[in-house]
Amino acid sequence: MNQHALLFFLRGQGLKFAVIVFTFGLIYRLLHPVLLGRKKNLAAPRGGEWGPGMRTIWHRSLFPVRLTPRGHFIIIAGYIFHLGFLITLLFLSQHIELVKNTFGIYWPALPPGAISIAAVLSIAALAALFVHRITDPVKRLISDFQDYLVWVLTLLPLLTGLALDMAADYQRMLIVHIISVELLLIAIPFTKLAHMLTTFSSRWYNGAIAGYKGVKA
C-alpha cells in the first residue's frame, strides 16, 4: 500500500471504523452506568437533585479554592493540558474543516500561532504530569499500565500535529497524525479516557446526592 492509498484509507474507512468504535463505545460507557439506575431514595428530600447535579457539573470545572502545593500542581497542569488540548482540537481551522465537512457546522478558527502555543503548553503539561506520575508516591501507587498507555496515546496526536508543518514529508506526518488520532479514538471507550463523558454523570450524581440533603457539593 503506497502512502496515498494509506492516507485515503485513513481519511475514509479507517476514520469510519475509529469513529464507529469511539461513538458506539463512548455512548455505551456513558449510558450503561446511568441505565443501571439507583434505588429510589425514600428519605424525605431537603433539596433538589437536578439543579444541584447540574451545578456540580459546572462547579467542578472551576478552579478549586484551597489546595496543597501538590494539589495546585495537579490542577494547574491538568487545566493547561485540557485547555490546550481542547483549543488545539476545536480551534485549528483544519479541524473545523473536518467538522464542517462532516456535520455542516463551523465556527471561527484561531490563528495557527495561537494553536501551536496551546499545543506546546498542552504537551508540556502532559510531560510534567508524567514526571509527577512516576515521582509522586500517591500517583505511583494508584497508577496502572493503562495510565501510561493513555498518556502516550494522548500525547501522540499533539506531537504529530505540531510536527506536521515542520515535517520534511507532510504527507507521511499527516498519515502518522491521523493514525495517532484514530488510535486515540479507538482507545477512548476502553480506557479511563471515557471520563470525557462519564465525568458528567459522576459529577451529576455527586451533586444530586449532596443536593438531596441540602448540601452544595
Binding site: F8, R11, G12, Q13, L15, K16, V19, Q94, H95, E97, L98, K100, N101, T102, L174
Partner: peptide, 9 residues
C-alpha cells in the same frame, strides 16, 4: 480539504 474525511461519516 485534506483534513476532512473522504467518506461521509
Amino acid at each position: 480539504p485534506l483534513s476532512a474525511p473522504v467518506v461521509n461519516i
